[in-house]
Write a protein that binds this DNA or RNA. Structure first.
Lengths: 346, 346
DNA sequence: ATTAGCACTCAATGTTAACGAGTGCTAACA
DNA sequence: TGTTAGCACTCGTTAACATTGAGTGCTAAT
């Protein structure tokens, strides 16, 4: 359907448009790319490509611009031919940049978005780890003073959460240890969901003696666990969008930036954008939401052990530098997975 | 120097410009504000006001625009006459909105910026609590498994930090308790700075038996304490800037947004903007940095006990609605101080 | 099948004129 | 002496119109 020359012409247009953001005319192609034919021939090919849906004309006397379909073809080929190379040296550089700031996992992810945006010069998005299935590893109550108690929860991914709360009545350290031990015994190894159920089951009747204290504590455990579960989206380099001529229009820029500010929506998009491949790409109109129908979203995942727990990606104009971004994302995916392994140290 | 009528004319121009963002002509004033004189008289007054530096002309045949000096006069009067009223009902509304999301202090502050931006429709900034002078209240080591240990630090403001780290050698719970007790004994009640000094002093020679383990732990304590100390700046509603006609120019908008993205710079600005008053206002050229020389920055503080520990404020065009913003900030300051009191529960 | 040539299209750019909000000055007035 | 009506003047804004030039599509010759 697309003979060799058509592909060459199409790729010339895509490559040219990716750097210039200007519609390409037939003469430009004959000059910049040596295809051995005249501009008139190119014109005919372009006319064909337009009919096939790979090119668009902004208006009659402008050049032509690649369509989403063209990018899709280009990107699929890119992903299949595996021509993308893993630059080990660069990988280590990135790793260093990521590690230097990372003491907590959320910080690591946030910093990753920053570095990714700096490297690619597009807006970067990152989804904090999802740990719904993670299990409680340790629960402990510590006395702060007569009335205040610190609750510490640790899950098997090494995420720690804590809350200070205040009791109505004095409690001594020994009592807290008894309660801690009991909670540990009952809840250790359960997932967040399990614990929610367990709580309802009034497992605490055995602890009659401490009923009042435990009644105080339960909602706090619940809330704290829900916090662990909460999804955070980090965005960095939002203002990079100003660098692209297609966003010289203020309304467009505004709508893009407002869109990126809606973290809840972003979380849903990132979570739903899952086809099982290492790299996932949504081009232009493939996006559901209007404000980013002229953007491409490229994401990858990061793992803890064998489980995918989060995502990181890049969003920018459809004419983005796909090979560069895909390479960068591969490095980030690998690095994050390695660093998490190390941080959690299993 | 400024007679009564000049003041009236000036205020008319300021008020009009604050809502319209358009230069005001003499006729507009005679029509909209009944000053009992003709436009020619106003014209003369305006000419005088310009000579005195209170008005600017964008160009010969435009109307006039208030200068920074005019805003300064207006704002000083506003702050002195104390005409600003505290709306108790609104205060409670805001309080509710702030509390609903606040389980941790940083979250509370972040959420405050969000609510403040929503209420004022300007960009809101907030500085997370500064606790350099806070004291260690509790330190504890908890076993996670054979090799991993959780370090928990609590300070007297109720801020909790923790880190998981891994030891070279197995350690049992009893040993951890001994070390915990020792550290508590030695370090409790000291400020972050004190602890840094204490650490260098090799206080641990008494604990010869656990030297190796403690040597492992010290840098972790240090790092964790530095984390507590770190300043965070939250910005919300950055894209509100697009609503103002003075930012219809893309470069201006870009430079503003880039400026707000530099959190370190913002932190310095917020920290330095301290004159000891409840409300602090920097107008236009009083700002040091070029990108916000056409903005005003209004901030207030929030406290824990008697100590100012953070700031929250609003940044927008110099023609901002000062009375509204000042009122809002007063409510936020009072509410945050109350909520912190409650959260930390001293 | 390719290509040179040419008429045609249309956004972008430049030029000019008309418009009108607003100023500043002058002279008359109370 | 302060106020005001009147008027010439300024200057950014807008609209209308012509010009330019990159690019297309078609045709006829190679």
């Amino acid at each position: 359907m697309l003979d060799d020359r058509k592909i060459k012409v199409l790729y010339a247009i895509i490559n040219s448009y990716i750097v210039s953001a200007e519609p390409i005319g037939s003469r430009t192609i004959t000059k910049k790319y040596d295809l051995g034919v005249s501009s008139a021939t190119i014109r005919n090919e372009m006319s064909d490509l337009e009919e096939l849906g790979y090119l668009n004309k902004p208006h009659t006397s402008a050049g032509r611009v690649p369509s989403d379909k063209a990018y899709r073809l280009y990107v699929n080929q890119l992903l299949n031919t595996g021509k993308l190379k893993m630059d080990i040296k660069k990988k280590e550089e990135i790793k260093k940049a990521l590690i230097s700031e990372a003491s907590e996992i959320d910080e690591l992810i946030q910093n990753s978005a920053k570095v990714l945006s700096a490297i690619t010069s597009y807006t970067a998005l990152a989804l904090s780890p999802q740990l719904k299935k993670s299990k409680l590893k340790h629960i402990q109550l510590l006395p702060i003073d007569d009335l205040k108690v610190l609750l510490v929860l640790v899950n098997d991914s090494g995420i720690v959460k804590n809350t200070i709360f205040r009791l109505d009545k004095k409690i001594d350290e020994d009592q807290l240890i008894v309660i801690s031990n009991f909670l540990n015994h009952k809840l250790k190894g359960l997932t967040i969901e399990d614990i929610g159920r367990e709580m309802d089951n009034d497992i605490f009747k055995e602890m009659y003696e401490y009923k009042k204290i435990i009644d105080n504590i339960i909602p706090i455990i619940n809330k704290t666990f829900n916090d662990i579960d909460s999804v955070e989206v980090y965005a960095d380099g939002v203002n990079k969008i100003f660098d692209f001529p297609e966003y010289k229009d203020l309304d467009k820029a505004k709508s893009f930036i407002s869109f990126i500010e809606d973290k809840e929506l972003l979380a849903n998009i990132l979570l739903s954008n899952t086809n099982g491949n290492e790299i996932e790409i949504t081009i232009g109109n493939e996006n559901i939401y209007d404000p980013i129908k002229e953007c491409s979203l490229i994401t990858t995942t990061y793992k803890l052990g064998d489980v995918t727990i989060g995502k990181i990606g890049v969003i920018g104009p459809t004419r983005m530098d796909y090979p560069m971004v895909i390479n960068a994302l591969k490095l980030f995916s690998a690095n994050l997975t390695e660093i998490l392994e190390m941080l959690v140290g299993r």
